[in-house]
Amino acid sequence: MSEFIIFSLLNTLIYGLLLFMLSSGLTLIFGLMNVLNFAHASFYMLGAYFAYQVSIHVGFIPALFLAPLGVGILGMIVERYGLRKVHAHGHVAELLFTFGLFFLFNELVILIWGRNPVDYQIPDFLDFPLFTLFGADFSAYKGFMLLISIAMFIGMYLVINRTRIGLVIQASLTHPEMVNVLGHNVPAVFMYVFGAGAALAGLAGVIGGNFLVTEPGMAMALGPIVFVVIVVGGMGSLTGAFISSLFLAGLQTFAVGMDYSLADFLGHFGIQASSEGFWGDIVRIEIANTRAMIPFLFMIFMLIFRPKGLMGVREE
């Protein structure tokens, strides 16, 4: 049991921080520009593909820097020459623009790298067990992912709270016009934040793509859950995104190992649920099998009972 708990906690941390890497950019972009960027998970996918391509030629370590940089620059271009123009035509246009972008990136990736997963592997020098606990291995690559995620988190914390650009970003979350008329170039700040958010999603792709799988479906696989994270955390709140990333990761990770069902629960009260027919199937569904559903269920209840999310600032 303690083995299950410790490994689940470690996996929660890894998965949770990966989710935060993706959702931090998305929530900041929403907070600043009021844009829900459907294509955000595409940057995650592109990060993985860029890293694959770069690592073939010059290795994994350069890819770790070059791929997020490339994705970040692409993000800035998208904001400067796409979103900023579309912005004048309102939220629906923006939403449709990012929606189109999502499919555009997907098709481009299929065109260049094909429909099948590419062979983006964990580098050899990180492919060994870091330690063994209760007879189970904890891989060095997981340790590496953890290290990168924590470094990213600390770096982001320092930038937001200790630098002037961080102050400008924080102030722009609530009063972009005021920041603008104090002489700060808010449109440029938007562009840089969009680029940085894309770069972080790209970084998640670099370290997640080889750990999971690098394929055209990867944006679709992770995109919805990232939305759940920012809705539950409160749109625009970094702290909220952090808490809800870890929380939802924990919920999903622990759910995997649970073979508890409604029938077991009723059993505690001496109620013998019938195992026959349709309802018999329903009560015998194990929690582990609802893993993919839990976050969305959570989001729906959050929207009904606390629409602004855990730490949200907006009431609309």
Binding site: A171, L173, T174, E177, M178, V181
Partner: peptide, 11 residues
Amino acid sequence: VPEDRSIFPTL
């Protein structure tokens, strides 16, 4: 200086 004062509440 706008009418609503626009103080940055989180700073």
